[in-house]
């Protein structure tokens, strides 16, 4: 299977504003590979480097050294993001636009035709159940509705790779179910999903492959079965990998 997301010796250092202190190293030569059609869980405790990795993949921060590519294109090239969808942990959109206007704006960025845009918007609004509110400004939406707008925008270009940052955190049970449904649907369609999460049960249920990072380093990577081998479940395996002693004892 083709590798569609890859990092090689990816290193990111944040410059310290106080010159007397050393720079903070967020990623220490991360090597990662995600193949087409996989649902890939990217795990790690807070501060492990998950968000930094995603920020590099999405072009928000430049790597200090090493490389990262999407579909074989360096992530510093905007075209690398042509076939991806991104759902941030918390959704923030132009509140003066309506959901339909927001989707139309993003569709234009992807260069979709007018008829294609109309069709996608109709499908996505139906999928996230926002048809009734599509002409209302986003500022009038509830938090759950805004999150659903976020899901819709991440799918506007019918992406081959979906990058989700803690997609279910802050969602109500209904919203979580909707996200799981979407991931499952994309998986069925043969799309690739790369997502970070703290919900290990969820990861276990829907992921094919998992990577665990800790303190900026890749600690483990493989199928869920491979990582969980010798442990009662993925959670215990995760705790052991990140060096939580009680888990190792159990």
């Amino acid at each position: 299977m083709t590798v569609i997301l890859q990092t090689q010796k990816l290193r990111v250092e944040y410059r310290n504003r106080d010159f007397r202190q050393a720079n903070k190293v967020a990623l220490l030569g991360l090597d990662l590979e995600v193949r087409a059609g996989e649902v890939f869980g990217f795990l790690g405790p807070n501060g492990a480097g998950k968000t930094t990795t995603m920020n590099v993949l999405l072009g928000f921060i430049p790597p200090t050294s090493g490389s990262a590519s999407l579909f074989g294109i360096d992530v510093r090239q905007p075209i690398a993001r042509q076939r991806i969808g991104y759902l941030p942990e918390l959704t923030y959109y132009y509140k003066f636009l309506t959901a339909e206007e927001l989707l139309r704006f993003y569709a234009k960025i992807f260069g979709l035709s007018r008829s294609e845009t109309d069709r996608r918007i109709a499908d996505l609004l139906k999928l996230v159940e926002l048809e009734h509110a599509s002409k209302r400004p986003i500022k009038s939406y509830s938090k759950g509705m805004q999150q659903r707008v976020g899901i819709a925008q991440s799918l506007i270009n019918n992406p081959d790779l979906l990058i989700l940052d803690e997609p279910t955190s802050g969602l109500d049970p209904l919203g979580r179910m909707k996200v799981r449904e979407i991931i499952q649907r994309l998986k069925d369609e043969g799309k690739t999903v790369f997502f970070s999460s703290h919900e290990l049960g969820e990861v276990e249920a829907i992921c094919d492959h998992v990577a665990i990072v800790h303190q900026g380093e890749l600690k483990a990577m493989g199928t869920v079965a491979e990582i969980s081998a010798g442990h009662p479940n993925l959670e215990q395996a995760f705790l052991k990998v990140v060096g939580y002693q009680n888990a190792a004892a159990s």
């Binding site: 999405l58 072009g59 928000f60 941030p88 923030y92 976020g150």
Partner: peptide, 9 residues
């Protein structure tokens, strides 16, 4: 809002 925007091409 810059994040979902720059995550696009």
């Amino acid at each position: 809002t810059i994040f979902p925007l720059l995550a696009k091409p």
